[in-house]
Amino acid sequence: MATKAKGKGTKKKTSESSAEKEENEVIADFEKHIYDLQQMLEISRSFCTTIELNPLVESILYIAMAQMRVTGAGIFVINELNDEKGYVLSDHYSGIAIDPTIEYRISVDSKLVEFFTQSNNVFTLPELKEYVPDAGKEFSMLETLSPSLVVPLILKNRLNGILVMGERIFIDGMESAYTNYERDEIQTIASLASVAVHNASLIEQASTDMMTHLKLKFFFFNILEDKLDNAFAQNEKLSILMFDIDFFKKFNDTYGHACGDYVLQHVAKIIKDSIRDEDMACRYGGEEFTVMLCNTDVEGAYLVAERIRKRIEETELVYENNKMNLTISGGISVFSVDDNPVRSARALVDQADKALYVSKANGRNRVSVADGEEIK
């Protein structure tokens, strides 16, 4: 009888252990869902606070890579400012190998884009080949990226981009294929990213001068205020360059306003090509341009300004068979906590503007530096 009683006790204990195990699994699963929801809130907050397209794309890439444990990722997006008729990869990628001989572009008229806009899902490349068998050209291009997953960024039946996930980082015991839970997770991230990309694209268009493709004055000052506050907090230098095309009126008067537009576009391109991605160039008004150089001291700012001035001076323009040369004058101001602690973006730009007019007064085609209220 004692043995029987012991047997019943063991059975009851085993049953309780099984129930406890099941309960612990439910709790663990619940806690994971709570954690993932908190992660999504943080991701959403990150996307919503980034209004510039390039930093936003960079943020999306790193978040997707971290969440899905992949070695790299890239995003195909439309450049509305350049009237692109396709989704291009451009430099919107990290950690994936690019073949320089291939144009990474997906036409807006392709079967692949049509399929994406009709199907709110994520796909492996073999799955896409099965669903869209006649998109051969795009598949050949995508295959060179070795994607583990292709994720459309859909918002209201509009394709705002295509996220390509690279090779997965395998951990012991982890399955090679994406689980349904992981697919749902990356799809949620893609939904948040699609809204952010759409909004950033609208801001990009609204804040950009259509002729020169440089930022407009109001947007430039808005960003400069933030950068100035950050430079003060981090004790960093922040430089402003102000440029004005010398004798610009003669181009309009001699060859017409279309020629003047051509000159503005040429100068804007040289300025934009001469600065880093983290810097910002602006069409300040008429033939004036402003540049913000982040974390740059006076020596660095002068090197950039001189590089721009020399490139413009050395370039010969041809407009309707007329050869033209032009020059540009520049002024520099530098924010410094110790030497020039101005707290107003307007004041810092005004200093550069005063330095610019020193250059004009001293013969043009040169760069002058402002030191606080004192012009050198």
Rank of each mutant, 00 (worst) to 15 (best):
S359N: 05
N199M: 03
M40Q: 07
I96Y: 12
V342A: 11
F47D: 07
T208I: 05
Q265N: 10
A361F: 00
C294M: 14
N230E: 15
D277K: 13
E22L: 14
L317N: 02
Y131G: 01
I312W: 06
R158Q: 12
N82R: 14
L317G: 03
K237F: 12
S15V: 03
K85F: 04
A200I: 04
L159C: 08
R276M: 11
K360A: 01
I102D: 02
F243A: 14
Y255T: 09
L149M: 15
Y357Q: 07
K129Q: 14
A196G: 04
D353T: 07
I154H: 00
S274T: 05
N340Q: 08
Y319V: 00
T50E: 15
K12Q: 09
E287A: 07
I154F: 00
P133H: 06
K32A: 05
F243K: 15
E22G: 08
L293I: 07
M68V: 06
N235G: 03
Y302S: 13
Y255H: 15
G136W: 02
N362I: 01
R105M: 06
I270P: 00
K269D: 04
G86P: 00
S18P: 02
S90Y: 10
G166S: 11
H33S: 14
A177W: 01
G74S: 14
E314D: 07
L303C: 13
I96A: 08
L214N: 05
N54D: 11
